[in-house]
Structures are given as C-alpha cells and as structure tokens.
Design a protein around this nucleic acid. Structure first.
Lengths: 341, 341
DNA sequence: CCGGTTTGCTTTACCGTTAAAGTAACTTGA
DNA sequence: TCAAGTTACTTTAACGGTAAAGCAAACCGG
C-alpha cells in the first residue's frame, strides 16, 4: 500500500515547517514567493490531497450533509435527492444518504448516525418525524442545520422548510375536472396527514368555487397506495347517481382507482374522469395516460440545498428567520381527465 | 448552542483519565467494576455520542463508503443504491452518494472527493470508467477497496465485480421470441460497450440454437435511449420480408421501437413482438406491457455491499482473489411478446 | 545607529479519539 | 517475606490538519 502523502511529508522533504505548507495551501499572505513556489511544486510532484477527516476535526466543519428519506424505491424522493445532490456537490459538499424505510425508529438511528458523523446539516424528508422532534431539537441545539421537506408540522423544530401548496394541488385537480363539465366529482382522500387534509380542503374549495354542492358519499377514505385507491373507488362505484369524476389524493391511488373502474366495465375518461397528484415518472406511459397535479421535486431538492448552504456558508445576513419555501404545483393534462389529445 | 459532550468532559466530571473513559466505551478488560459503572452512568446522563470524525482520524477507518452512479434519474441505478444502502447501513456504515452525470470528468472529481474524505471503499457503477482507470489504481493503491458494478473491462483495476450475464440476457429474450413461433427476429443493438455486445452475442447464439439463420439487416445499430430504439425500428420496418419480432438492447429502446411500430400502423404483438432488457420500473403499466429480461438490481447492490464489507471487516480469509459475482437474469413475460395473458 | 515595524517563517497548542507504555498498589507463591 | 505477577488505572504520543502566538532578520525613519 502506497504511503499517504501528508503535509508532514511535504514539509519534511522541503525542510520547512508543517505550518508553512498549511499556509501555502490556504493562500495565506505571509509566505515568501520562493517558498510558496517550492511547496506548490512538491505538492504537485507528490500529488498531495488534503485529508478531509483531519481538516474536519480542527475546523469543526465536515462539509458533509445528510439526507434522510423514507423510501429509496419511490421515485418521488429520489427526484428530491437528485436535485439536492446536484446543488450540494457543486458547492463541494458531500451527501450521506439514509433511508428510514418509513420507520420512526430507523429514522432515529440514522439521525444519530449523522450526528456522530458531525454532518453540518440534515435534509429531512420525513414520513414520520412525529416521534423524533425531540431529537431534531437536540440536533439544532448542537448547531446542526435542518431543512425539512414537505413537512409543515413540528413547528417547535427551528428549521427551514420546502413544501408544495397542497391546497392548491387539490384546487387545480378539482377545478380542472369541473372545467371539463364534470358535475359529480368525488375525492378519494389520503392518509391522515396534513398534506392529504389540505388536498381535501382544496377539493372542497374548488367545488364551492364551481358552484357544485358537495354530496354525501363523494368523499371516501383512501390512502397513498394503489390498493387504497382501488378500494376507495369500489366504494364510490356503489354511489348513486354515479359520480362522473374522481380526484385521488395521489397517483398510485389514481391508478388503483382506474383499475377498479375498468373492472366495473366502465371507461376512463368517458364514464369517469380521473385525476391524481404527484406526477410520478412514466405516468404518461400508462394504458390511459394519467392527468395529475405535480410540482418539481428537483426544485424542491435544489431549494432545500440552497437554503442549507446559505445558512452554512452565507454571511451573518443568512442567519435570519427560518423560511418556508413553497414550490408551486402545476396541472398536467393527459387523457384520463378527458381534457386533452 | 449546547456544549458538545466529549470524553474529556466525562473524564473531568468523574475525575478519571480520558483513556479510562475510552476503555470503558471500548469494553476493555482492565477497568474495575465500580469505575466502569460510574463512567457508563455519566455517559447515559450526558447523552454522550462519540465523535466519528476524531475516531476516524486515529483508527484510519471512516466506516463510510462511496457510491458513484452515472444518473440518479435512472431507476436502474437507484435500485442498486437501494440494495446497497440497506446492506451497508445495517452494518453501521455511512454511504456518500455521488452522481457522475455520465461524465468522466465529473466522475474523476467525485472519486477525488471520496478519496479526500478517506472513505474505506467505493462502489462504482461507471458509465465511463474508461478514462479513469489510472485513478482507480491509485485508490486501490491507497488501500481503498473498490467494487465495480456491471463492468467487466479495465481488468487492470484490482477489485471485485458484480455483473449480470449479458449473453444470457440476449439468449433468454431471443429464445423466448423463437418459442412463440417467431421466425424473423431482429435485434436493435446497444451502444458499443461490452454489455451490449454480449447481448448481441446471446441473440446470435439463441437464433442458432433455434435453427434460424440470421438474415442481413436484422441487426441494426441502436443505443440505450428511447430515441435509439425508435430510429432503429424505423430502419427495421423497411426490411423485407418484414420482421415479426424484435429484441431491443434495453427497455427504453424497446419503448421507442413500439412507438415506431404504432406509428407505422402496426400492432404489438400481433404484427411484431417486442422484448426489451432491464425490467425497468412501471414496465407493466405501459399501454402494451413490455416483455423483458431483468435481473435483480437490489441483489446487485446488496452483493456489492457484501463483497465490500467482507473485504473491510472480514478476517484475513476474505483478502483472497478478487471475485466476479454474476446476478442471474430472468425472463418477464408480458403482452408485448404475445406470450402471456 | 537605534527603536519600531514589517516580512517570513517556526513553535506551541489544540480538535476528540485510541494505542502503547508506564506505574502504583495489591495479590501471590515458594 | 519478598520477588514476581496481577489489577486498575494514568501518562504520553499519535492521527493530519489549523490557529495563535512567538521570534529572528531585514527594513525604515528620524
């Protein structure tokens, strides 16, 4: 194994002190022209690379961030990670990737791991921060910056947040269906988290704006899984008069709903129009391409990175109030809502 | 900002030496029962967490691995990362995620970054290791273990490899088409890398096994992108007598091929059967579900992790010859090949 | 030509941890 | 009863780097 090139070695071979080498590498003023040149030559000759671990220890900055997401198999989070990674690596930061597997205990373990590794900051896309806000407060107390993705609760954790406007998601989806002339617009709700509740709020608000009275049984309890949408739609199909449109709380649920509709011998969008939310990848390659409301996850990741880096590297000016950045949702019209080619 | 709890602080409050605390935490034998209990109590009281950076510096082990992939937006690599992350975090290792964006220069930069951060090992899913095998040799020379994913070239880099059997991929796809009674089976090749060449070898071998003579023009140059498949199929549609099946070198190319077929007013699989390779996510939600040959990327990531950890933590026994682990491919029959429901 | 400043370097200390060597006090065994 | 362990610690040094203080030699103005 090749001997590692350290500043000590460079200093030794040149007959100067280690500090001199350090100063050259950090562009300090008080080193003479000749010495600087000699050191630089040696550095190039030996291919010296600084040891980031040692550097981190003295500087008390690792230039490393942690990202904790609930599930690596979900394209949703991966897109956030992609946006984050790009922004973060461009600024010379490393990114420690952690998956909590939707499990609060594993999340705790990952957060502890990140703490021990002395990361400068953590971006948290928590499925379930609920149990862990004590830990999060500890972390901020230790000077670890936190940016939360898609979480508007746990307001006792002092951090920036990057989220979408979930009420607008529900509004856009529902208003679009109303604009297509649908009048019996149902909603398969999500799980009991703020996001889903706000989407339902948007649904109700858009119905009202369209002058449609919300009928009983139009809102059925669902969830964020395909099977939830399937079950929810089964229930809706029993409602008379039959609904002519449904807004599912996310895309997987919408896909489940379409399956239930087809099973019942009905057609999408002719009999029932369907709109989802989330704009998942390949959504346009489905048997019936799915109309959905999305927002840029890459932006979400990128903005999270920017907030974080601003706090870490920005001047004192950056240390102001914690921010809530909202990524605006957009409507993607495809065949399932009967709205486009 | 809360004061960080260090061993020094614990030692101070207890009136013992730092080493004593260290020994307790590392379960050394030579500490008395009473002292051990006092230290442990203090550790619990102050919620002490070891500083991994300092630990890494003395131990010369960071318990951190790097993973370098070409593209985070491609589900293929993400699945590998998922398998890797699970295995690695279960063993207490951290994972630094890097994307090379299919760019040899960025890859170099990321590898340098990982070297400076003193990672114990690097898992490399290189789109283009070509230019960087010098760097890779440097890294192994420094004692950084490397595991290459899906790469069988650069044999001068001493490392383990986890790959699939690409010839078998081509064989399975082609033999399946032959088994469906197709006789004019074309192939849209991939880019000029070993993988693609081996898939083409498998294609030729399976044709031979089926007693089909390979006709000129049946093999057209393609690539791994949807547009490559589209263009390749356009060319194939001009061949007479018309082919009745096509094996595309990967799934995106197969999707492109299907689009070209539909544009020509033909049907899949009735007129032309299509098989891809890779088994990308959501492949079964396509307008015509795609028959494909896949292999478990999670396994690939997991096996990479196992090889790596075995080398890092395993006894001397593990330091033997470098291994080539082959992940077996499997056939997924869906509608596009006319083979299933 | 002498006190003070500037220039260009070195010395010392520290970041938080572990390993190796050192050392008292307390057993042993013959 | 005393040399030779054994037990339970402490001291010292090191990992690779940075920051602060120190210090000679050259330079400068009056």
């Amino acid at each position: 194994m090749a001997p590692t090139t350290t500043m000590k070695r460079i200093a030794g071979e040149l007959g100067v002190s280690i500090t001199t080498v350090s100063k050259v590498l950090n562009n300090r003023e008080d080193i003479g022209h000749a010495t600087r040149a000699r050191v630089l030559a040696k550095v190039a000759e030996l291919g010296y690379q600084p040891n980031a671990v040692a550097r981190s220890l003295t500087l008390r900055r690792t230039h490393t961030l942690g990202i904790v997401i609930p599930d690596l198999m979900h394209s949703f989070f991966v897109e956030i990670v992609a946006g984050l990674e790009a922004a973060v690596s461009a600024r010379g930061y490393g990114l420690l990737l952690c998956s909590s597997n939707e499990n609060a205990k594993k999340e705790r373990a990952e957060l502890d791991m990140l703490r021990q590794r002395q990361v400068d900051g953590i971006v948290l896309a928590s499925a379930n921060a609920s149990g862990n806000s004590d830990l999060l407060r500890d972390l901020t107390g230790l000077g670890i910056e936190i940016v939360m993705i898609d979480r508007d609760d746990h307001t006792d954790v002092r951090c920036d947040r990057v989220l979408t406007d979930d009420e607008m998601v529900g509004r856009l989806a529902t208003a679009h269906l109303a604009a297509q002339g649908r009048r019996a617009i149902a909603h398969i709700t999500g799980p009991s988290i703020v996001h889903a509740k706000r989407r339902a709020d948007g649904y109700r608000a858009a119905l009202k704006d369209a002058g449609i009275a919300l009928r009983p049984h139009w809102m059925v309890k669902g969830g964020f899984m395909e099977s939830d949408g399937y079950r929810g739609m089964k229930k809706l199909l029993a409602v008379t008069p039959r609904v002519d449109a449904v807004f599912a709380s996310n895309d997987p649920a919408a896909i489940g709903a379409m399956k239930a509709i087809w099973e019942a011998g009905l057609r999408v969008p002719e009999n029932i129009a369907v709109v989802g939310a989330g704009d998942i990848a390949l959504g346009d390659l489905l048997r019936v391409p799915l109309t959905t409301v999305g927002w840029s996850r890459e932006d979400q990741g990128r903005r999270a990175a920017e907030l974080m880096l601003e706090r870490l590297d920005g001047g004192a000016a950056a240390k102001g109030r914690f921010q809530r950045v909202v990524i605006p949702p957009y409507l993607v019209v495809r065949r399932s809502s009967g709205g486009a080619a």
